[in-house]
């Protein structure tokens, strides 16, 4: 048996041996927590429009996002968001609150290395790719929009 065959056989054996994540409970928790975050966003938005009827709808949505981002950041700082994430998985990663957590958590973690080399440099280690892909894809869409 060559080394390659041995490694392939071993990897196959290990794959069969690995305990599987139970998909249904994870999906369920992910779904209802994710849904709850969206309901919260809708609630904040409705309240804003109720309390400040003069707000433009677009402005209300922007404010809602800011509030959600702040809440997630705050929960990250007091050590709660990682517990939610452990329970909900994708449910708390996918909404904008997850994005906020992915920026706040490295900022907190690397505070010890200083403001510039710690917080500022490391802040985007996790969220960086999302921002890059976001900007690149919006540029592509913009180009298509320009010519079509």
């Amino acid at each position: 048996m060559t080394e390659k065959e041995r490694n392939e056989a071993y990897n196959k054996y290990v794959q069969n041996k690995i305990p599987k994540t139970r998909a249904w409970p994870s999906l369920f928790n992910s779904f209802w927590i994710g849904g709850l975050i969206c309901v919260l966003g809708q609630g904040i938005n409705d309240l804003l429009l109720l309390w400040f009827p003069s707000l433009a709808e677009q402005t209300a949505w922007t404010l809602t996002l800011i509030i959600l981002i702040f809440l997630a950041s705050f929960l990250t700082a007091i050590g709660v968001y990682d517990l939610i994430g452990k329970f909900a998985g994708g449910g708390s990663i996918v909404p904008i609150t997850g994005f906020s957590n992915s920026i706040t958590s490295p900022a907190l973690e690397f505070k010890r290395e200083g403001i510039v080399y710690g917080i500022c440099v490391k802040m985007f280690t996790i969220a960086g790719p999302v921002i890059v892909f976001g900007i690149v894809s919006s540029m592509l869409v913009g180009l298509i929009y320009l010519f079509v």
Binding site: I18, P19, K20, T21, S26, T76, A77, G79, Y81, D82, L83, I84, G85, K86, A88, G89, S92, I93, G98, N101, S102, T104, S105, P106, L108, E109, F110, I126
Partner: peptide, 17 residues
């Protein structure tokens, strides 16, 4: 964790292994 994996407060899940 900080050297090999993720920040402590990141809300991710750990695989069963």
């Amino acid at each position: 964790e900080r050297q090999f994996r993720f920040p402590l407060e990141l809300g991710n899940q750990r695989p069963p292994t």
